[in-house]
Design a protein around this nucleic acid. Structure first.
Lengths: 229, 229
DNA sequence: GTCTATAATCAGATAGAC
DNA sequence: GTCTATCTGATTATAGAC
């Protein structure tokens, strides 16, 4: 990954312009517009003209800021990956399995509803063979899974949850939660709804948390602290 | 959907040429090549030249057979949908919940491993808003879900399985099974494997069947007849 | 830093010889 | 029925004025 975008991702629209603020604002406008277009039309289906139109910026500026369409796409992916990366970082075998899994599922569901476009760009990238992020998957993502799987495995060994393959359990959680972002059109059409209202979002979170916990031989934890949906 | 492809989908490569055989063979060669390319690069990322190269056929012939790239894509989607359509057609409340769900999950998993490209073309189509198959989802697919959900709901009402939202259960089964086709690259990379061997395929089927049945408060059915993987 | 005009490339589609 | 050559339009990228 190219990275280095994060340092430029702040300060937009705050008071009178300081040096770099226009740049920061346009940078973010382009990234957001690009994410929208890439999610909806894929990499090749998206023209830089469309991105420029959506961002309200002249097309030439996109090349001025990012040099190439390919580079812009990499920045978008980089943006998305940083969203994905702060899950369960601090989990340990001392924690309560039900609480951890409940929190994991609910945070994943929340992310699906708050950043569906990001999820879709990522999904299409992987479906098409992950040409740009294979290295990321092979290293960081794989390490993350291996670590969490270790904790889950130990919980199973100690009889604190069902004896269930931890890696495939993680796949199950990923797939079932992301489904509501990636397949939004299908889900909404079948539910005969126009969008995911707050009620439906809670229903999905409750359903997936309860179902997955039951599959792990656990029961839903009592909500000690009020939940941040 | 346009349809009418099915009638032309036979007779390839059998003995001396009869009228229409060359046509049938080329037709199928193009469809297969197109499915591969569309799955890998998306609609806009695929050029008719690439499809022609893979099919070993001159580019102009693709237009001769299908008139347009868009038409060819519709035929590919049509092909895929007919694969998806014969699931649980004959299920009724008299059946055994565990047996039905076990069979459903296993057939879905088998399809993910046997036709991953088809699954991916379908997935990208939906992720990008299902522009070509929204009608199909709104009518046939929705009807299918409503019918099966009714049966599941009754099973729950009769206490023959856990009280679980049937529609979201279907989404869970779809998402978790298709994950192995659509996100194949990610799954294989994390498992550190080159492909899905027979062992892994059986492991996935066993895992998903057992996990989903447990989530439904059911136990794995005894295998009465040998399974067709 | 921004925009207009344009160059260079490539894709889908078609005409017409075989 | 098949293939080569070509047309037409769209897209990325850049040059250069402001």
């Amino acid at each position: 990954m190219t990275s280095s975008a994060s340092s430029r991702r702040n300060g937009a629209r705050r008071g009178p312009y300081k040096p770099g603020q226009i740049r920061d604002r346009n940078f973010q406008l382009i990234i957001d517009a690009a994410e929208y277009e890439f999610a909806r039309h894929g990499y090749h289906g998206t023209s830089t003209q469309k991105i420029a139109d959506r961002a309200g910026i002249a097309k030439a500026n996109i090349h001025y800021y990012f040099n190439s369409k390919s580079n812009l796409y990499l920045e978008v992916l980089d943006n998305i990956i940083s969203l994905w990366n702060d899950f369960l970082d601090d989990v340990s075998v001392e924690d309560d399995p039900a609480e951890v899994l409940d929190k994991f599922v609910r945070r994943k569901v929340a992310l699906s509803f708050s950043h569906p476009q990001a999820s879709r760009v990522f999904a299409v990238e992987i479906i098409q063979g992950a040409p740009h992020i294979k290295e990321y998957i092979r290293t960081r993502m794989r390490k993350w899974v291996t670590e969490k799987a270790g904790v889950l495995r130990q919980w199973s060994a100690e009889g604190r949850m069902a004896d269930i393959d931890p890696v495939h359990l993680i796949f199950l959680i990923w797939s079932s939660t992301q489904h509501y972002a990636d397949f939004e059109t299908q889900v909404l059409t079948i539910l005969n709804r126009k969008d995911f209202d707050a009620n439906t979002q809670r229903q999905v979170a409750d359903f997936l948390s309860a179902t997955i916990l039951r599959a792990c031989g656990l029961s839903t934890p009592a909500p000690l602290s009020p939940r941040t949906s």
